[in-house]
């Protein structure tokens, strides 16, 4: 597991933090950070089976900002949940950093979710009992045992504060989610997703519940993170407007990838 998570950047093509990604013009092909092959998923209720994904193929390169669009029911959120190991696929495979991850035991899936992935959801999904700072620290608390947490607590708090500062919430660290606006909650959720220095950020309709201005703020933040820190982002949305800022657009319809569109200017 550790070799997967802490794999050296040079072997995976993962950029170092702070290093911007330049388009590779050499003949050596870039190894995708995420490879989805023939992914199928159907939901079952009693004897009734509702197929959602019919065999999705998708590659995401390191440092790429990919958006997935599609109509409601096209399976885009399901795809994201399967990639994020929140659900189990019926067939097909998911490879992350060159290793298949969809068939790993639960404990390793938990660890990948905690250490390698960052999640941003449409409804923010912050824990209402915790302050903004505690919400941001939560993935680190989950990842470490009580002793490890006590040892690394000081550094973690400093980093969480830096992240909140970066998303413009340095003055609201002790506020509970109910005291924050929608945009602020989503930026807190973004800080939470970044606290473990994830290698893949999965965003499920991150602007779906925000007004245009707050939504644009969040997208700007994602774009900056992608450009400045080389963060690989896979974003599901139905808002075509915000996909303009992404490197590539994948269109999903009835459980299949029907179209891909590159945005070289983005």
């Amino acid at each position: 597991m550790n070799d997967l998570v802490d794999v050296p950047a040079a072997t995976t093509g993962q950029p170092l933090v702070g290093e911007s990604v330049q388009p590779d013009t050499t003949s050596v092909p870039i190894k995708p950070v995420l490879r989805v092959n023939g992914l199928k998923k159907a939901y079952r209720k009693h004897t009734l089976s509702v197929p959602v994904l019919h065999g999705v193929n998708l590659n995401v390169d390191p440092g790429e900002f990919v958006s997935i669009v599609g109509q409601s029911g096209s399976g885009k959120s399901t795809l994201l949940h399967l990639i994020g190991l929140l659900d189990a696929n019926d067939s097909g495979s998911i490879e992350f950093e060159g290793r298949r991850i969809d068939n790993l035991p639960t404990s390793q899936r938990d660890k990948i979710r905690n250490e390698a992935f960052g999640f941003v959801f449409q409804f923010y999904h912050l824990l209402p009992e915790l302050t903004a700072l505690e919400n941001v620290l939560l993935p680190l608390m989950i990842g470490k045992g009580p002793f490890g947490w006590l040892v690394s607590r000081g550094r973690a708090v400093t980093r969480a504060k830096e992240l909140l500062e970066r998303v413009g919430l340095g003055h609201r660290i002790d506020h509970k989610p109910r005291e924050l606006s929608g945009g602020e909650m989503q930026r807190t959720a973004l800080a939470r997703a970044l606290i473990t220095k994830p290698r893949l950020l999965l965003a499920d309709e991150p602007t779906g519940n925000l007004d245009d201005e707050s939504g644009a703020d969040v997208i700007r933040l994602l774009r900056t993170l992608n450009r400045e820190e080389g963060l690989t982002i896979l974003m599901v949305t139905h808002n075509l407007e915000i996909t303009k800022d992404t490197d590539r657009l994948v269109r999903l319809s009835k459980g299949l990838v029907v179209d891909e569109e590159l945005h070289p200017a983005a």
């Binding site: 929140l86 639960t106 905690n114 999904h125 824990l127 939560l138 989950i142």
Partner: peptide, 16 residues
Amino acid sequence: TRDIGILKALGASRFG
């Protein structure tokens, strides 16, 4: 329920 979902998404184990 939703908080439990969040915790699991963030990597909390069943036992946790």
